[in-house]
Design a binder for these strands. Structure first.
Length: 475
DNA sequence: ATAGGGTTAG
């Protein structure tokens, strides 16, 4: 950390606009651009305020960006709120700060405020950040709306712009629109990023064959661009989605010949592919060859072991990860809870749930609770599962998963009361869960209430769910 | 000058 010269600390009383003053400002801006340290940033911030430089938009923007990079979004926001004349860079920086701290909803409301303020118009940078927020929320309705504004702005014919737009549609599961954007880019140019976005859109929407087909066209069409680690990882995940080891092995051969086998991103997707296509031993081989591990490589391997019923080894791996000072995140803890739930380590699982915040700084969210509800239910502790589920505030989609888990537990352990309760909650969740109607109807039938059963089937018909019956009864 | 697009775990 660099140290401020004492001379500078006495400059607070310098009259404005003289030579020394300007020089001081240049010095502070210079120091601010260089530092990556929170303490020094705070110090420079104080000096900037004292000397009245905060009224300068450029200087304030630098401060905002510094705080965004340091993940101090609230401080960044405070600087922004106190600005005299925020420009498009100030707005965009704060929006992307909210993206970086997993607050896409706030990013979008900032964009709305910017629109209302009308003093500043969004540019390419702003739109790219806002589409990223839509992607994170998988909100295609809002995305479409902003897409319309982008078309009006005339900024659309730009490779970065269109790539972020097509990525947004892919993440919102609207592959057809994503493809239309991709096709429209032919006139002004695509690059590796835009091709990767489209391949990813297919891969993440269970259309692996089309992803691979597009990868082939890329190799056939482009003369300058070569596939990079991102594209290769995406192609491997497309193979994973096909669930066929054969395809996965082909892609493995391909990345080995390309010299990408030891790349961390590629290796992680390979290990996930092997785990999901049925070869845990190959997955482990890949894992052991990784030199520089990430939270994702560990999490993938923990998940793989968990899914194969290797609870203890998964937990051992978790301990190893923690001792190597790789910080687990919420997905890692989901893996650990899964490991417990698939190996009957029920009390251990409860222990992880109750201590994850304190020990690992990860606040349990509805997904973690769902996992534990499922675990308790599987191992006969249905009442505890129910008591826990009742206390969780949960959105409709996740709620359907949580009550669905409880429904299976009720069925598995012959608990008509739980089946009824879980089915009702499932139906309340308003998701398209026909199995809930079927289960509730069957439960009434079991309990002797044939009339209830019949009325439910009627309700189901009215709800247009009747076609799903055959599927639901197999599920 | 300061801000923006693609990837791997769920």
């Amino acid at each position: 950390m660099s140290v401020l010269p004492p001379r500078l600390l006495r400059l607070s009383f310098t009259p404005k606009n003289d030579f020394f003053h300007l020089k001081t400002k240049a010095f502070l801006v210079q120091k601010l651009s260089e530092t990556t340290d929170l303490f020094l940033t705070n110090l420079l911030h104080t000096l900037i305020l004292k000397l009245g430089f905060a009224t300068d938009t450029f200087t304030a923007n630098l401060l905002i960006n510094k705080y965004v990079k340091l993940r101090e979004i609230n401080t960044a926001r405070k600087v922004f709120d106190e600005m005299c004349e925020p420009n498009v860079v100030s707005w965009t920086s704060v929006i992307s700060g909210y993206n970086d701290t997993s607050q896409p909803q706030t990013a979008l409301s900032m964009f709305q405020e910017m629109h209302k303020a009308r003093s500043v118009s969004p540019n390419e940078f702003t739109f790219a950040s806002v589409f990223k927020a839509c992607s994170a929320l998988a909100e295609s309705r809002i995305g479409k709306n902003i897409h319309a504004r982008l078309e009006v702005s005339g900024l659309r014919s730009n490779t970065v712009m269109s790539s972020s737009l097509l990525d947004m549609y892919g993440k919102c599961n609207d592959v057809e629109t994503a493809r239309r954007v991709f096709d429209s880019m032919a006139s002004y140019g695509r690059n590796v990023v835009s091709w990767t976005s489209m391949i990813t859109a297919y891969a993440q929407n269970a259309r692996g064959h089309e992803a691979i087909e597009l990868f082939r066209s890329f190799n056939a069409a482009s003369t300058n661009d070569r596939p990079n680690q991102f594209m290769r990882a995406s192609v491997i995940s497309a193979c994973t989605s096909l669930g066929r080891l054969q395809w996965g092995k082909v892609s493995h051969g391909l990345v080995t010949r390309g010299g990408y086998e030891s790349n961390i991103v590629v290796a992680t997707s390979l290990l996930d592919m092997y785990a999901k296509c049925g070869s845990l031993s190959c997955a482990e081989k890949i894992f052991l060859r990784i030199r520089c591990h990430s939270v994702i490589s560990y999490t993938s391997m923990i998940m793989a072991k968990a899914k194969h019923g290797l609870g203890e080894p998964a937990i051992q791996l978790f301990d190893e990860m923690v001792s190597r000072r790789i910080k687990p995140n919420y997905v890692t803890l989901l893996g650990v809870l899964h490991a417990c739930g698939h190996s009957g380590l029920v009390n251990e699982g409860l222990g992880y749930l109750n201590s994850m915040k304190e020990k690992h700084g990860v606040v349990p969210d509805p997904r973690h609770y769902t996992c534990v509800v499922d675990m308790l239910g599987r191992f006969g502790r249905v009442d505890e599962a129910y008591e826990l589920a009742k206390t969780i505030e949960v959105g409709a989609e996740q709620g359907a998963l949580m009550w669905g888990a409880l429904l299976s537990a009720g069925r598995l352990h012959g608990r008509v009361d739980i089946v009824c309760e879980a089915s009702k909650r499932l139906i309340q969740s308003n998701q398209q869960v026909t199995s809930a109607y079927v289960a509730l109807s069957n439960a009434h039938a079991v309990a002797g209430g044939w009339e209830d059963s019949e009325s439910l089937r009627l309700e189901m018909k009215r709800g247009g769910n009747v076609k799903e019956r055959a599927y639901a009864q197999n599920a």
